[in-house]
Amino acid sequence: MQCEICKTKTATVHLTEIINGQRTESHLCQNCAQKEGVSVKSQLSLNELLSSLIAAHQHTDEIGDSEISKKACPECGITMEQFRKQAVLGCPKDYDVFEDDLKDVIEKTQDNNLTHKGKIPAKAQADPNAQNENRDKIEELQKQLSQAVKKEDYELAAKIRDQLKDLQ
């Protein structure tokens, strides 16, 4: 679609105005829109980018979505809906409470990685619960791996294998 004003550039700004019930649409290019005083944000902050990413995900996954959005973290009270708006979580526990919902977000922003590799703080090294958490995770991944092999989904199997390698 061409810009309505300069008729040369592609229209990238689509404005719908409703004044006294009268609806008008204009399609402008970035330059003409700025000249017309339509504020165009050309730079998205990382958080805004993330919220749009999360919102897009929300759109494609509408089944049962309203229930997920309403679930609140018992610790901080945040819901997925609120997280989608502000792109920051409320407390460390959210990573457990919203594990399934966050998985996609984390995969998308972290180049498909889901397991930490790197520094472990001194206090966590001494924590026996942390060790158990690791063992549970390994068992779960081993289960997922055998399922993936059964289904002949070797791409997924390779991914799980890599995660296991990182954990062991």
Binding site: V105, T115, H116, I120, K123
Partner: peptide, 13 residues
């Protein structure tokens, strides 16, 4: 901190 996700931050990025 969690063994799985490492240092837990306000934004998953």
């Amino acid at each position: 901190f969690s063994r799985r996700y490492g240092f837990l931050t306000a934004c998953p990025t």
